[in-house]
Each structure stands twice: as structure tokens, then as C-alpha cells.
Simulated assay, not measured.
Amino acid sequence: MYQEERLIAIISYLKQHKRISVEQICTLFDVSRDTARRDLVKLEEEKSIVRTRGGALLPSHVELKPYLSRLETVSEEKKKIGKLAASLIYEGDRVILDTSTTVQACAEQLANVNCTIITNSINQADVLSSKSNINIQLLGGTLEKDHRFLYGASVVNKLSEYYADKVFIGVIGISQEGLTIAHEEDGVVMRKMMQQAKQVIVLADHTKLGNTDFFKYAHLSDVDLLITDKIPPKPFRELLQQYDVELLTADEEQTGDD
């Protein structure tokens, strides 16, 4: 089992049992104590757990950092996902982009193709403004200053006037419970974005798989394609199959084993 698969499984166990010990990790995954400790260190670095003496707990609340702070730490995984997503935007496409940093990685690597981009992200609009062939429709509304997106009834109403070929959506969590995010006002807009597109494409690195956050804005059945960085564990792949969600992985070197 890859470390990424164990990390997802550890978080899943914590969601059910609230705590886990190093000994339990060793028994559940047939690994050494050193490997178990490295897994916990990795999860702590990702702020997914709180380490305790001999084990770990789930944090009581995960605070979402301001957008510009998150941009400073955009991972190589997100960049790979963004590159693959950008390759799916073609000449003449009408595309909706949401406000996530993973979707911005897509915008940054998008070729200067003749297409139309609809977004409520002032960062996405700024990134794309240097590309002469791209037509940008920036949705107006109330500015969420920390996370640099526009929201409110005017954004939702304006979205209802557009019909797009594709929408690219980021998540904080994607699981059996559906697609979830930290802010309700952002989620309401994203729900409308999905309704206005023929194809719904979710961009999520492996740390988001199996997670559930504060506000649910869509069901798994609303998703057509998931792009992630690593091949998910078999139970998650089976969940995607159950809901007819196609899967693309950005890590070409990884093989699809259990």
C-alpha cells in the first residue's frame, strides 16, 4: 500500500473512531512503528490531525487560510492536476472556473486558445488577462476579501444567463457525502456553476479524497470527471464507479494497484 493510501485510510478511521494509536496503525496496515510515526508526521504537516502521545486525534476545526497564503504553498500535486485540466480546454470552449487554488493552477497553465472563461475569481481573471485570445466574463457581486472571490445573489443570477461546455470545480472534501467546502456563500455559487455546464470536472489532490467539510453543495452524482494526483484506494475508486464518475490521474508513473 502506498503512503498516500494509508493516509486516506487513517483519516477515514479517525472519522469513525475519533482517535488512533501508533500500535493500531501498525496492526491495521502491517507497517513498522517508524512507518506509522512518519505517516502521522505527514498528516500533522498537512494539518489533518493533532498528534498525541502515542497516536493522533482529528482537529476540532480546520481553518482555511486566506487565498494569497494558500497560493504561496500551491503543491506540485496541484500544479500537475492543473496542467492536466488545462489540456482539456479546447478552441471555442465556454468554460466556468471557480475560485480554488487548484483551479488557478489550471488557469496559469492554460494555452492562449480562443475560448471564453466565466469566473467569479478576481485572481483567475488577473492570471488570464495576459492571454489575448481568451475572452473573460468576470461575475460581479460582493467581494470576499480574504479569499478573493465575488459572491451573492447578483453572481448567481448572472450565472443563470450563461450555458457553458465545462466547469472546473475545486473542493475541500469529496466523499460519500458529496462535495463540501468551508464557506456556504462560495458553495451556493459553485452549485449554480455546476448546473450551468454540460460537463462537471472536479479538481482535487489526494488529501481531499474521503474528506467532508462544513457545507455540502453537490452530490457525487452531479460530477462527470474527477482529476486527482494519485490513483485513489480501491474503495474510493469503487465509490466513483457507483456514481458513474470518470477518473483521471495526473501522476503518469503511478500504477493502478490496490
Results as ranks from 00 to 15, higher is better:
4 E>N: 15
7 L>D: 13
9 A>S: 14
10 I>R: 02
13 Y>K: 05
17 H>Y: 08
18 K>I: 08
20 I>V: 11
21 S>V: 05
24 Q>H: 04
31 V>Y: 00
32 S>I: 09
34 D>A: 04
40 L>W: 03
43 L>P: 11
50 V>H: 09
50 V>N: 11
51 R>G: 08
51 R>W: 07
52 T>C: 06
60 S>N: 13
64 L>K: 14
65 K>D: 15
66 P>A: 05
84 L>F: 06
84 L>C: 12
88 L>E: 12
90 Y>D: 14
92 G>S: 03
93 D>A: 08
101 T>P: 08
103 V>D: 01
106 C>R: 03
117 I>S: 06
120 N>R: 00
120 N>E: 02
121 S>N: 09
122 I>F: 00
123 N>T: 15
129 S>Q: 11
141 G>I: 00
145 K>I: 08
149 F>H: 15
156 V>G: 01
157 N>L: 02
161 E>L: 05
161 E>W: 00
162 Y>M: 10
166 K>W: 02
168 F>A: 03
169 I>S: 02
170 G>H: 01
170 G>E: 05
171 V>I: 13
176 Q>M: 07
178 G>K: 04
181 I>Q: 09
183 H>V: 08
183 H>K: 15
184 E>L: 14
189 V>I: 13
193 M>K: 04
193 M>L: 07
195 Q>S: 05
198 K>N: 12
200 V>H: 02
200 V>I: 09
209 L>Y: 04
212 T>H: 11
213 D>V: 08
222 D>Q: 08
225 L>K: 12
227 I>L: 10
227 I>C: 09
228 T>C: 14
228 T>V: 13
233 P>V: 15
238 E>A: 09
248 L>Y: 05
256 G>N: 14
258 D>Q: 10
